[in-house]
Design a binder for these strands. Structure first.
Lengths: 148, 148
DNA sequence: CGCGGAATGTTAACTACTTGACAAACTATT
DNA sequence: AATAGTTTGTCAAGTAGTTAACATTCCGCG
């Protein structure tokens, strides 16, 4: 019963976290959580292709392709072709997009820091490391299984 | 940066966990992870209303309403009206549905137990408790904020 | 009793994703 | 250099959820 309790807890916690983030972002920046993720992920790289961005976001290429016009129309993302490369598009945050990403990320960071501040008894670094170890274990075993 | 690292890690871990569960369930029981959750949640109560089930699953009443025929058609769930109550429907697993829920839950439990067995250095009970504490903290603060 | 208000279940319209198919562009091998 | 194979971005169709509106049923209270 250990297993099921903890996977349920994880799902619930993630739901609460993401809902809270979504609420804050909508209220202050008129931004969806997944729009926020799009911008922040884009900021984390320099001029990636849509294909690579899709991989980072964990969604399909088609999904990125469909969402791009929304960000272009609002002047947040610029799509360009690299000269001498007719195949790949290149994505880049505009100045406005970068500002929005930075401001919203800072804001969210501050909000959660305030919330977590009271939870003094938790070592978040250690927790993060533990969760990552579990994740790696799962990924590792999966690959072994698939190869077999 | 603490905050963002851990929320990202949480999301990634949940994704890996749920994907693995989905893969196993499809392969062995021709069942989606969310279909599995539907059955297991239903088994956890006795003859709930669709409305209550929706709340437990964290989805809208409309979503449950739309999904019910799928489970009825396959003889997994029985929908009935309680006599003297024209308003509420009553949901119940059929024998077949209960068997499928039990078998798939047991199977998943066994799979994950095997995976986790190697991660000896993690105290899963303690981890579960920690995650729950964080969740409660978040919920608590949210309610205070909303009331203000 | 009867009537206003709340809750339930269903429907319609919408959203955000998916997969599969495709053309265009690149890469590698011969 | 030609070509077979891969990668990329896009489109069409399908899926699972959402919100909003609705009829129906129940409840509390005059």
């Amino acid at each position: 019963m250990n297993r099921s309790r903890i996977t349920f807890t994880l799902n619930e916690l993630v739901y609460v976290l993401n809902s809270a983030a979504d609420r804050h972002l909508r209220a202050k920046f008129d931004l969806t959580y997944s729009q926020f993720l799009f911008l922040v992920t884009l900021m984390g790289q320099n001029t990636p292709t849509p294909s690579f961005l899709a991989e980072c976001l964990g969604v399909s290429r088609a999904a990125v392709s469909q969402r791009l016009p929304w960000f272009q129309d609002r002047g947040l993302v610029e799509v360009s072709r690299v000269t001498g490369n007719g195949k790949n598009l290149s994505l880049e945050l505009t100045r406005k997009g970068a500002e929005l990403a930075t401001q919203s990320a800072d804001f969210l960071e501050k909000e959660f820091r305030a919330l977590f501040y009271n939870t003094a008894s938790v070592d978040f670094d250690e927790l993060d490391e533990t969760l990552n170890r579990i994740k790696q274990q799962l990924i590792g075993n999966r690959e072994i299984r698939n190869a077999a």
